[in-house]
Amino acid sequence: MIEPTEREVTVPSGTLAVRTWSAGNPRWIALLSHGYGEHSGRYQWVAEQLVGAQALVCAPDHVGHGKSPGERVLFSDADTVVEDLEAVRRTISAEHPDLPVVLIGHSLGGMFAVRHAQKHQDSLSAVVLSAPVLGTWHVLDLLEAEEIPDTPIDPSTLSRDPQVGRDYVDDPLVWHGAFKRPTLAAIDRCLTAINEGVTLRVPTLWVHGEDDELVPEADTRTGIDRVRGFEFHEHVYPGGRHELFNETNRAEVLGDVLTFVGRELNT
């Protein structure tokens, strides 16, 4: 097991807890953007695979998530989260100025990754999107309710491996409560900004599970079609649920990701 180094990085929202994995002599930087309610510590296995492919892996906990400060799962402006991500990228790139950066975003972190790529395309060599929240998202229907119900994420929707759901439920750093209205409103505004924004020039890979109930592939595709650039690749996995990096075929998924990255970086 490769133990991560933990540090704090100053960002526009204040400070973020950041985990870094490396085995020495990296050839590229993998910047991970985790999903709603979770944290970067859930990406230990992913980080180890990336390090095995000569990456230096850098993964912040977004504001209000994991070990980072802030009210849990609360943010009022998604662009602030995006600029936090950019501040982390600048910090790690300043320490390793010769290494190309690949931004990897999962779920809501995929939304942040796309918005980041729209605003900072020249800082990235490639983007990987895992089940990104794009286009439309049924969870935003909660904004129409007078009072948002306490409906936590069903752990069985994460993976066909039941242990993934059990670990999720038992993880004290995962948020298991209700969605917060300002956060949902900020997500809604961000999706609109993405839809109205520029297409992606940076090479991009989109991976999604065919049986994803949390972020249905068809809904994401409506947003993908708005930002899809000239060099865009996709894999939709039959039977796959929401967390492809924790799925029963996770080795296949990571293999496809690393094939894409290796091709784009010529590693």
Rank of each mutant, 00 (worst) to 15 (best):
S68W: 09
V73D: 09
F75P: 01
S76C: 12
S76K: 14
D77H: 11
V81W: 06
V81I: 13
V82Y: 08
L85K: 05
E86T: 01
A87G: 09
R89W: 07
R89F: 08
I92N: 03
S93C: 11
A94V: 02
A94K: 06
E95G: 05
H96C: 04
V101N: 00
L103H: 06
H106F: 02
H106G: 03
M111P: 04
A113Q: 05
A113L: 01
A113T: 14
R115I: 15
H116Q: 12
H116E: 08
A117E: 00
Q121V: 06
D122E: 14
S123Q: 14
V127E: 01
V128I: 14
L129P: 03
V133Y: 04
G135C: 03
G135K: 00
G135P: 01
W137T: 00
W137C: 03
V139M: 13
V139C: 07
L140M: 07
D141Y: 09
L143N: 12
A145F: 09
E146L: 10
E147P: 02
P149F: 07
P149K: 04
T151K: 13
T151Q: 13
P152V: 03
P155Y: 05
P155M: 05
S159Y: 03
S159C: 05
D161G: 02
Q163Y: 14
V164L: 04
V164S: 01
D170F: 07
P172W: 04
H176N: 10
R181F: 00
P182G: 06
L184D: 09
A186K: 07
I187T: 13
R189S: 03
N195T: 15
G197C: 09
V198H: 12
L200Q: 08
L200E: 02
P203Y: 07
